[in-house]
Nucleic acid binder design. Structure first.
Lengths: 110, 110
DNA sequence: GAAGCATATGCCGACCGTCGGTATATATCC
DNA sequence: GGATATATACCGACGGTCGGCATATGCTTC
């Protein structure tokens, strides 16, 4: 799973959100580092819907603008949980190796 | 940074390794889940070298087969550390939301 | 009142990185 | 002799993201 996809799923894990709200939530979540492009977001939303990881929650019209809200499905929740566990494992492995490296003073042990 | 790239960097964080050894280390590290394709690996190795994140450590000939060993550069180490921190942060955010969700019994609070 | 920005969805071509296969070559195992 | 493991490398195909554009409305600023 790629980063944008993971972030979109995480945004929807909080609560049902419409597309633009996902962009904003992801931006806040990443400290401004990631601002999803419209093309990326809506393509991913369609794809994720096709995969059954998210579904349309409801549609609202606010100030004559459509808002389509999405929510995580059970499969989406499981998928996000699995991906999160994977991320954590990989981070732990990488951190361990990085730490061992530094204990070496850059490789000059002797 | 994509997963294969991250895993390659992590493999080289342990010690200098040649291409095929990276494939094996990544396979072990992921519990057999990820077996890098030759195309993916060598393309990534070339790219990473171009970006200055890794460099050739040495070359050996074992049983008339060439082994080109790569190692992480200082920039590569920093890059991997930053990526690892990012992974951990995102995992923490996602976990928090998933936990909050479950505390809700799937949204039916009332 | 025009310009610019935020909101909101959506399409499109370009690009990057990975996949999957193939090529090449040697050694080992059955 | 054929399959598998080792080891590097190239290639076309594909998927997903980028970046830009289109569309439309409302709000703010000048």
């Amino acid at each position: 799973m790629n980063e944008p996809t993971f972030l979109i799923l995480t945004a929807l894990a909080g609560e049902a959100r419409h597309g633009y709200a996902v962009i904003e939530d992801v931006e806040g979540m990443t400290g401004g580092r990631v601002r999803l492009r419209a093309g990326t977001l809506y393509a991913a939303l369609d794809r994720l819907r096709g995969e059954g990881l998210i579904e349309v929650d409801r549609e609202e019209v606010v100030q004559s603008r459509l808002r389509r809200y999405y929510r995580l499905t059970g499969a989406g929740e499981q998928s996000l949980a699995a991906e999160t566990a994977r991320l954590r494992e990989q981070a732990t492995i990488a951190e361990g190796r990085l730490r061992a490296r530094r204990a070496d003073f850059g490789g000059a042990t002797a």
